[in-house]
Amino acid sequence: MDLMELFLIALGAAVIVCYGVKLLLFSRMLFPKMWFPLSKSFFTSMGEWAVVTGASEGIGRAYAFALAKQGMNVVIMSRTKVTLDQVAKKIGDTTGQRVKVIVTDFMKDNVFSEIEDQLRDLNIGVLVNNVGTLPNFIPCKFLESADLDQAITNVINCNVKTMAKMCKIFLPGMEKRGKGVIVNISSGVASIPFPLYTLYAASKVFVERFSQGLQAEYKDKGIIIQTVAPFGVSTRLAGYQSTNIVTLSPEDFVKSSLQYLRAGDKTHGSVCHTVLGWLLQSIPLKVLYSELMLHSLQDYVKKKTALTAQSSTFESDKNK
Results as ranks from 00 to 15, higher is better:
T274R: 09
G173K: 13
K165F: 09
L23D: 02
G277V: 03
V101F: 06
N184I: 03
K266H: 12
V128R: 00
D109I: 09
G239T: 08
E144Q: 10
A55M: 04
C18A: 13
V17I: 15
P32D: 07
L134K: 04
D85I: 14
L84W: 01
V51Q: 01
E251V: 10
L134Q: 02
W278E: 04
C140E: 08
S145V: 03
L307D: 13
S145R: 00
L6A: 13
R177E: 09
K161E: 02
V181A: 04
A10W: 03
T243M: 04
E57K: 15
Q310M: 13
Y260W: 06
A309Q: 15
V51R: 02
L84K: 04
I223M: 03
A151E: 00
A50R: 01
Y240A: 07
L261R: 05
G180K: 00
K33I: 10
R61D: 00
G96M: 09
A68C: 05
M72V: 11
S234I: 08
S78C: 11
N159T: 08
K302P: 08
K89E: 12
M4D: 05
V17Y: 12
T133I: 12
F26W: 10
A64M: 02
S282A: 15
C272M: 15
N154H: 04
L248D: 05
F65K: 00
L294M: 11
L119T: 15
L199C: 07
D117G: 15
L276P: 05
I152L: 04
G213M: 10
R79H: 10
L8F: 15
P250H: 07
Q226V: 13
P172N: 08
D117L: 14
S257D: 02
L119K: 11
L8T: 14
G264F: 02
T104A: 13
T308G: 13
I102V: 14
I225P: 01
A164D: 07
V51M: 05
L279P: 03
Y197L: 11
N157K: 08
F137P: 01
F36G: 10
E114H: 11
L143F: 12
S27F: 07
R262H: 14
A190S: 15
Q118T: 12
S257P: 07
M174Y: 01
L143H: 09
F106A: 00
K141I: 11
Y260T: 06
M72T: 06
T247G: 05
L292C: 14
L292F: 15
E144V: 03
I192C: 04
V103R: 06
S41R: 14
Q259D: 11
A263G: 08
K22N: 10
M1C: 10
D147S: 11
D265A: 13
T162W: 03
K318I: 12
T94P: 02
K108Y: 01
G92Q: 11
A88T: 05
T274V: 11
G12V: 09
Q241R: 14
F314K: 13
N154T: 05
L288G: 04
W49M: 10
V181W: 02
K304I: 09
I182V: 13
E57L: 13
L279Y: 09
I102W: 03
K69N: 14
